[in-house]
């Protein structure tokens, strides 16, 4: 019963907090650019606005285009249920295997890329092609740090990994741990579609990657996809924050109290906002990379992940 309650609570938290996080990042960027920037609540207002609008469907599209927003949203939502965000004993955390999480993201992306091709415009196709290429080369760099963590914990279940690290205390922060974190952080930028890899704010047809696939969407469907993108960003942050710095998370070892949950919520919010601000600072201090420079960056992150793995194996002795 407790697990069910916690799962629902975690889902509601994710649904409610994800747009706010995007708002905070936008605000931070505005602050560093000496602008006032949109209100923190703007993402919610946008979602509300989209929900009220008429949905326009292209005459060339098929049912793939129509079901994609739902498949995308639900796949991301399942990840939100299986990931250890506030607690490690959610109802579905037993199946929260790292491969399930990564491949659910891949399932969502697969459908979105198909939808990008469906309307028959060159922009959607271009965006699909680029998104799939970038995510494909990001995959090994994404997986290797996760493997290192899984091997260290003796399980590929994310909740299991988080509990292992949480119980390890400060000694868990080895050089291997930190290198692995930085490697995953770089991939996190790619997965959340931020500068220097993609620009979430652009609507210039030739430079956008992710936004290009949403170009033909409107109304309720756009609302769903936009919310899903907010949530995905939060989930990537959760992966980064909780896998490497899980302290504060509610785990069964500590016993359950309401205060535990409160601390967990606050701790996670603080970690996510902190990561978001770092991302914002990176975004305002860099220019977007040329598309074909991205592999170099991801290669670097892969090599860092490899170093992390090697030092983990050597240090373990």
């Amino acid at each position: 019963m407790l697990a069910v309650g916690l799962t629902i609570l975690q889902m509601l938290f994710v649904l409610g907090f994800a747009p706010l996080l995007s708002g905070i990042i936008k605000k931070t960027k505005a602050f560093f650019q000496s602008r006032r920037g949109p209100s923190l609540l703007q993402p919610y207002r946008d979602l509300y606005k989209y929900l009220q609008k008429e949905t326009v469907l292209s005459e060339h599209t098929s049912w793939i285009f129509r079901i994609t927003p739902y498949v995308y949203f639900v796949a991301i939502l399942i990840v939100a249920l299986t990931l250890p965000i506030l607690t490690t004993f959610g109802m579905l955390s037993f199946t929260g295997d790292l491969f399930i999480v990564i491949y659910l993201f891949a399932l969502a992306r697969f459908f979105l890329a198909l939808a990008g091709l469906d309307a028959g415009s060159a922009f959607g196709g271009m965006a699909s092609s680029r998104e799939m290429a970038v995510s494909a080369i990001a995959e090994p760099a994404l997986m290797l740090p996760l493997f290192t963590m899984a091997i260290a914990a003796g399980t590929s279940n994310l909740s299991g990994i988080v509990e292992q690290v949480a119980q390890g205390g400060w000694p868990a922060l080895t050089s291997a741990h930190l290198m692995t974190f930085v490697a995953l952080f770089v991939v996190g930028i790619a997965e959340t579609g931020r500068i220097p890899i993609d620009n979430p704010d652009t609507h210039l047809e030739l430079t956008m990657i992710h936004e290009g696939m949403l170009l033909e969407y409107s109304g309720k469907q756009l609302a769903l996809l936009t919310l899903a993108v907010h949530i995905k960003q939060l989930l990537i942050f959760a992966l980064l924050a909780n896998l490497f710095f899980p302290w504060g998370i509610a785990s069964p070892a500590a016993g359950f109290q309401v205060s535990t949950l409160l601390i967990a919520t606050l701790a996670f919010a603080a970690k996510a906002v902190g990561l978001g601000m770092v991302m914002a600072v990176i975004e305002i201090s860099m220019a977007k990379m040329r598309l074909f420079k991205i592999p170099d960056l991801l290669m670097g992150s892969f090599l860092l992940g490899l170093l992390g793995l090697i030092s983990h194996v050597l240090l373990r002795g």
């Binding site: 929900l51 060339h60 599209t61 739902y70 498949v71």
Partner: peptide, 28 residues
């Protein structure tokens, strides 16, 4: 969960949202 989730989200969004659906051409 995936199958029921899709159905549930479809119902909820339909209930929340306003405005109908229009078929039009792809923006070019």
């Amino acid at each position: 969960v995936l199958a029921f989730g899709v159905l549930l989200v479809y119902r909820v969004v339909k209930w929340l949202g306003h405005g109908g659906t229009r078929i039009d051409e792809t923006w070019n």
